[in-house]
Nucleic acid binder design. Sequence first.
DNA 1: CTGACATCCTGACGGC
DNA 2: TGCCGTCAGGATGTCA
Length: 274
Amino acid sequence: MPELPEVETIANGVNERTRGQTVVSVWTSGKPQTFKTPPEEIGEVLMGARIERVHRVGKTIVCDVVRPDGQGAQFLVHLGMTGRLLVSTAETPVPPHTHLVLGLSGGKEVRFVDARRFGRLSIHRDTASSEGYGGPGREPLAISLEDFIALFRERKTPIKAALLNQTLLHGVGNIYADESLFRAGIRPTRKAGRLTRAELGRLREALIVVLRHAIELGGSSVSDYVDADGVRGFFQLEHTVYGRAGEDCKTCGTALKKTVVGGRTTVFCPVCQR
DNA sequence: CTGACATCCTGACGGC
DNA sequence: TGCCGTCAGGATGTCA
């Protein structure tokens, strides 16, 4: 389940391997759910375009391209649960569930592979905003303390659900929501609007530390996530609560509890998180 | 508007 | 060994 650190790792990998190259061929599976923008339109925009930069906004991989006519556009890749964006040689067998293949001028291919088809491909055109795609919410690694506190004011939903809400902060998913709440010592079921300024300050710090540390380790490898080379990250070795229900809390030794918050499996320490 | 919940989709895994 | 039920969850749509 790629979240911010995994998406950043993948985007950086694809950027290093494709930047400056031109798209010389486009193939799509045409599976309707995968294409938020119709596949024909994606093909028209990308064919002959030069890849300027590949980066991350929230959980979305953003490919900035320039078309032969000089027009800029952005190709957006959301990996969903099981999506992978691979840079492969043309000789590498095309995996099952491949939905898009971009042939590049350097001879390699960019492939989007997604078994469960929760991923989405789309085109974002530069219209009014010269800054391009901004994502649905605020960047957790860039938001100020005051703005962070304001996001949760008056909110009656559990803090865990609020962290998963991409229109508030984007990029946080189930793993890093649980991990940052543990680090901040906050129970996931607490109402967001009831947290004190001090608690929200701790939560923001915890999120930043956890996300940065995970990025350094190349993300968490859980189920289908692999980076642009097909290499797994190592942050899962450092998970303190995610996937550890029933095991001992690494801080106090108490058995970690499992519950459901915001429709998602949630693991927390009943002693360390209040 | 806000929050709760179902839905999509397939592979992995556990139990029998 | 193999089958089947259950679970995983990001984003979206529906409903109260």
